[in-house]
Design a protein around this nucleic acid. Structure first.
Lengths: 121, 121
DNA sequence: TTATCTGCAAAAACTTTGCCTCATA
DNA sequence: TATGAGGCAAAGTTTTTGCAGATAA
């Protein structure tokens, strides 16, 4: 895997936000600094990085969302506004992994769907 | 919501399998009994049933997979063969829901990715 | 130098939608 | 018989792919 400016900026972009952007959003952001970049390049790099577990890929509402934070955590998705927020409860993952048998998990994905703090008002 | 043969057969199909089929697979199955049925009808009904929480809709590998079992459980997805199996550990969901704050969850989705029992050999 | 990566454009895959007809209630 | 549902075809969205030229090592 060769170092390129595109790759570096994509990773930089993902690590600097907590919004779990889609490839499209990463593209728009990175394009500000590298105008000639294409969506295909963004997809290719994000896929590669996800495969190497350098970023997290979530499937939410029929789109891939990416997360630069690869520490174990969970996600909350608001059914009203669509916002994706993090929940850091390591013990949830630990508990879940403890219970599993007959299957060798390499990852656990835990997603809560519901109404976020703001939309509850 | 009006009763139709299509709807009934789709639900029947989902409830009789443990394979978490996609709309396409449900379509192929139901088509054996209702040859004139279309994929669009299957999608429309599955979406409706998912919204009414009569079936479960999972997003796995960029496809919707449907589950006729709406009791609380978890899913294991094999990274080799793609098989989706159920894991019934109610306590995992309970534990997860217990830990959550500032968010009103209506559902929890817990997916383990890894290598299934068969592919481990 | 050479193998990998990017940009561009086109294709692919999955899902939804519009419109008209049919059938349930 | 009135309205919701299905069939058909087309469109929409998101993601992937092939190829030729560019670039990192």
């Amino acid at each position: 895997m060769r170092k390129t400016i595109q790759k570096a900026k994509i990773q930089e972009c993902l690590c600097s936000v907590k919004t779990h952007p889609t490839a499209e959003l990463v593209y728009k952001e990175v394009k500000k600094e590298i105008p000639q970049i294409t969506l295909a390049t963004v997809y290719r790099n994000l896929n590669q990085m996800a495969k190497e577990r350098k970023v997290l890929r979530l499937e939410i509402n029929k789109e891939y969302h990416y997360d630069g934070d690869i520490t174990n955590h969970q996600h909350c998705v608001c059914e009203k506004c669509g916002e994706i927020t993090d929940l850091f409860k390591q013990e949830i993952n630990d508990f879940a992994l403890e219970k599993i048998t007959n299957f060798k998990p390499s990852s656990v994905t835990i997603i809560f769907e519901g109404i976020c703090f703001h939309c509850q008002k």
